[in-house]
Every structure is written in structure tokens, then in C-alpha cells.
Design a protein around this nucleic acid. Structure first.
Lengths: 193, 193
DNA sequence: GTCTATAGCCCGATAGAC
DNA sequence: GTCTATCGGGCTATAGAC
């Protein structure tokens, strides 16, 4: 993630913010240039095409999540608490707006994305489903989390609910939408059946 | 919905298809013109601006759903069956791709949408949540559907899961994703607690 | 109502000076 | 590395003939 110039980092960070807000199709090199105080042409030095930039942004986003998983593991060994912290992260406010998962947004735009970006989005989904499945599995074994069927299926369902909740929060412009839905969902996984 | 010319109807239908595929930002008047065999300028006769067109498309989409609700009511009075039919509709294949809810896609693009379109998207969410809440309520009263908390909260959670499942299906390009997640979710509402 | 023609703008991308 | 300048193209939208 490092051994890159500060300009490179600034472009990546700016593009991440813009893509989380507007998606792939509605942000431009001009937006980034204005945000970090350089010229459009300079961005092409680091990222020849928009395809390359978007691919790097999603790869970076995935790396951030991986670091988050490690930090979560460091924080607590309790699967139920790990799950709660994961859910809480997406409930934070960003720029006065509910946080939005970059890859939920890109999944919506999927059919208009360059192939290299599509692959990264699928990788994100796979990583998060795998992490959630492992957390659910552990929680089930120690009796703190409960669900029907396989951990893998429950993980897919859980992730779908969270991303759908973020969509609803964005649609209404109300962070509370996510908080309420995610709380109701967590309740289901805590209940014994 | 009628007392409009056939060209008007053709534009609306074409725009709906394109928006469900590409979203608001990635479809153009040129796409519609090519699809239905007229010229770009003619579209402006019916829909002066892209804002107007998108607003009309979402309003039309909402009306289709309302007609669907009525047809569902006609088909069966059993809430559990109504819910199943609702879920099954979004699992159909369209143009060789998993069906995608227009308003899930637009919710993702929300921050880049014209105000009049945003309002329509929120209206869609509200209508569907209200319909689902009423179905869940009825199902609970007659003992065929089960959930924790209020019907309104369960409806929001259920809708979030479905729209998240459609996102996942689109991300992977696999309709089965939606079918599996929605089936797992329905299972939760059928289980007695 | 539908067309041709075009204005005016923004886009991604490149060339080449410094 | 960053800049200025610009190209070529797509976009929404309008003017005006038919």
C-alpha cells in the first residue's frame, strides 16, 4: 500500500471518496484534480486510464477491509462482538451522509464497469462472505450465534441484508435506517431457535 | 398510464430497460433512439429533459408494482403465498441477466440524482415497505408468518435483504445467488420461534 | 410529430514544454 | 512529475425546416 508518492496516495484517497459518493460513472478526473489541487493531466501519469484508477481504488478498499479484519481479531476473540463491530462500522456517518459500501454501489453499476473492476468487486464480495462465514461458524460452535443452514449461506444472507440496509439509508438520507435494520437483523442471530 | 401515443410508450419502455441495466448516469438519449428507431431530438418532444424522463420512468415503475400488488391480491388471499410470489418475481431472468430492482440501482446512485427522481425512489421504498408490512401483519395474525418486533421493522429488514440479494446476484452475474439468499430468508419467516 | 443540424459543455486521453 | 494546450468524441438540449 506504500512505497508510493504522496500524490499517488492523495489521488487514490480522493477517488475513493468520490466513488463512494457518486459511483464509477459519475465522477471525473476533473473532480479529483479540484479536490487535491493538481491538474487533470497529472492524474494520468499515475493512472493512465480511468479503468486503472478504479481498479486500484477497489483493490485499496479491499486491503483496508483486510486490515480491519486483522484489527478486529486483535480487539476481541468473541465472534459475536466481532460481528457487532463489523456491523457498527458501516453505520458510521461520513461527510454528513450515511456510510455507503463502495462495492454495493459498484455492484449496482456492474454491467457498465470495466472488466478489471468487475473482478475486484467480486473479490470483495467473496472475501467478506468468507470472513463472515468463519465468524458465524465460530459463534455457532461456542453457542453465541444462531442460524439455520450452513454458515456460508447465512453469511451471504447477512451481507445482503447489510448492503440492502445501506441502500435504504442512502435512499432516505437517514443513517437510522441502517442502524435499525442492522439491529433487527443482529437480533435474529442472537436468538436461540 | 395510457392516453399517451405509442411513441411515448415506446420511449418509456426503452428507458426503463436501459435504466434497469445501466442506471441513470450511464444511459443516454442516443441509446433509446437507437433501440426504438427514432432520432434523439424526437425524445425531447415527449420528455424535455432527462430529469423529466427519469421521473416518468420511476413513476411508471411504481405504477407497475401497484398493479402487481392488486394482481397478487387477486391471485391468493394467503399472505405467505403473496410473499412468496413477490420474492419469486425478482428472481426471474431478464435479458440473460438476473432481474434487478430499478430503485435499488437508483438508491445507489441517489446522491447524483435530480431531486424529482429522488422523491420517486423514496416513494417506491415507502410503498413496498408498507405493502410488505401489511402482508407480514396478516401472516402473523393467522400464524403462517413469524418475526420478531413490529411488522414495519420486519418489512424493512426483509426488503433490505431482497435488494441486497439482487445486488449480489448482479455482482456475480448469477441469478442463483438471489434465489438462494431469498429462500434462506423466507425460511426464517416460516420458522416458528 | 419527426426530422436535420448544431450549439455548448464535459469527458478521458495525449503531446510536449519545463 | 507537473504543467499548458488541445484533440476527438459523447452528452443534453435547442432551433427551425418539413
Amino acid at each position: 500500500m506504500d512505497n508510493h508518492s504522496t500524490t499517488y496516495q492523495a489521488i487514490l484517497a480522493s477517488a475513493l471518496t468520490l466513488m463512494q459518493r457518486c459511483g464509477y460513472n459519475a465522477f471525473s478526473y476533473a473532480d479529483i484534480a479540484e479536490q487535491i489541487g493538481i491538474r487533470k493531466a497529472s492524474i494520468h501519469y499515475y493512472f493512465p486510464s480511468k479503468h486503472d484508477l478504479a481498479q486500484a481504488v477497489v483493490a485499496h478498499y479491499r486491503a483496508l477491509a483486510r486490515a480491519g479484519f486483522a484489527a478486529l481479531q486483535q480487539m476481541t476473540a468473541d465472534p459475536a462482538q466481532q460481528l457487532e463491530a463489523y456491523v457498527a462500522y458501516f453505520g458510521e456517518e461520513v461527510d454528513g451522509q450515511p456510510r455507503m459500501c463502495l462495492c454495493a454501489l459498484l455492484a449496482a453499476e456492474m454491467l457498465t464497469l470495466p472488466a478489471i473492476v468487475r473482478v475486484e468487486v467480486q473479490g470483495y464480495y467473496h472475501e467478506h462472505e468468507a470472513w463472515l462465514a468463519q465468524v458465524l461458524e465460530s459463534g455457532q460452535q461456542q453457542g453465541s450465534l444462531h442460524f439455520i443452514g450452513t454458515a456460508a449461506m447465512a453469511a451471504q444472507t447477512l451481507l445482503a441484508t447489510l448492503e440492502g440496509a445501506m441502500l435504504a439509508a442512502r435512499a432516505y438520507g437517514q443513517r437510522e435506517r441502517y442502524l435499525q435494520i442492522s439491529a433487527a437483523m443482529l437480533q435474529q442471530y442472537r436468538e436461540t431457535r
